[in-house]
Design a protein around this nucleic acid. Structure first.
Lengths: 233, 233
DNA sequence: TCAAAAGTGTTTAAGATACACCCATGA
DNA sequence: TCATGGGTGTATCTTAAACACTTTTGA
């Protein structure tokens, strides 16, 4: 194989910010490291890129190793490349963020990695530049969820409109008007009524909806605003 | 220095999509390669990341080498990492896009690199995955310029509102209503009248404005919509 | 029967859109 | 003086925002 003459081959890591939603709060899947470096501290799930592995494939592998999940929402965020970001060796890190249904993961692999779901509000300090990664991922989540229908990735297959509203309130750390929210969601035609009712609710049982898969695919790339105050000037 | 045991150190390239605006069309600064590999074909400006160089610094260096420009709008787009994207050797490429004022660059260095401003409509086929990079950069430019006040980076310091409108029409390949556009821009309070008139115009000379620097800084991070049809459902 | 959450309708205000007229300039 | 492009005003329609009442459920 021919090679470039440029000498500087660099270690390429991947780190993954994994978001979940428990019905009340946005949570992060974080690892309490029982390995070096920085053993005992908190970090994101990560790994190295192999020579013969696509970047996309590597990110899916890393998510799978920790959660047992495939086919999740997984999007590249940004690459972090300060010279001094990893004290062990010059390493650049390609960062992905994932949205997962918190009820679907494989508890065994999570335990094996010493990982825990931590709510954003209680996030401990993380190693290296992982705090900056999380901050940027949250910004991207807010940005994207305001314009695209990605929030559903954090919910179970069937959900009520009030549940969806709680999700958006958690993402934006705000309160929304129930009536306006409901009307707006209905008007997108993104939801299909299942006819079933939410059995968990303690009081009046809400109607369970699922996604209109076709419309949903369109809204992943097209603009929609699920966040009322974002009428953009 | 301690090293990780992981063996796969990989060549890290940077590629840069450079957008300009000539008053009528969005243009790309492309290189007709007089060097290997793919000599004779068109490509983006690129280079390799050095072992002791921050990623951000490297992207600025590459932009400077080609255009002689510093302090431009330069933002990381995404990292491309297919195994087979570069036939010479496994290389991942961190892609940046830059917005430059087409009148300010250093013609000498551009000539030295055998680079030319090509309008988007006449873009030739590029090497490797550079076409996909350009496509994504354009999508990002459209996305971002609809919400943030970044378009100004493509204009000279002083400009008329009709010039600004032409820019947005070029970015979105559409026609906008002159009266509504003007009102919307004025209402943002982003422009400051200079009192001067555009001397280039053949007919009625338009008022020259410049940016309200303070407001501008805010709008780089905050949302603004300069694109009327983007009321997002 | 009462508290808590779900569901729906109305009114108002703001913003987007469409459209018409006048002004300045140089050929 | 006329064609071209710049500047401003107004009416209408759509959408967001604020707000009140009724229904369902289990304790």
């Amino acid at each position: 194989m021919i090679h470039y003459t440029h000498p500087s081959r660099i270690l390429v890591a991947l780190d993954c910010i994994i978001f979940g939603f428990d019905g009340e709060e946005i949570k992060l899947l974080l690892i309490k490291r029982n390995f070096e470096p920085e053993k005992g501290k908190w970090s994101l799930m990560g790994g190295f890129l192999n020579e013969t592995e696509d970047l996309e494939v590597a990110s899916q592998r890393i998510l799978y190793e920790l959660t047992g999940l495939t086919n999740n929402y997984l999007e590249q965020l940004q690459t972090f490349g300060s010279v001094s970001r990893d004290p062990v060796e010059r390493t650049i890190s390609v960062v992905y963020y994932a949205l997962v249904n918190i009820e679907q993961q494989d508890v065994t692999t999570i335990k094996a990695h010493n990982a825990y779901w931590i709510s954003l509000k209680n996030k401990p300090e993380l190693i290296f530049d992982h705090d900056a990664m999380v901050e940027q991922a949250l910004r991207q989540l807010r940005y994207k969820a305001a314009l695209h229908a990605i929030g559903f990735e954090l919910l179970p297959e069937k959900f009520t409109i009030p549940q969806l509203q709680k999700l958006y309130e958690a993402i934006y750390n705000t309160k929304l008007d129930r009536r306006n929210f409901s009307r707006k969601i209905i008007s997108t035609d993104l939801l299909v009524s299942t006819g079933e009712k939410d059995t968990n609710s303690a009081t009046k049982k809400g109607q369970l909806y699922k996604l209109n898969a076709e419309k949903y695919q369109r809204y992943l790339t097209d603009y929609v605003s699920f966040f009322p105050e974002l009428t953009l000037l």
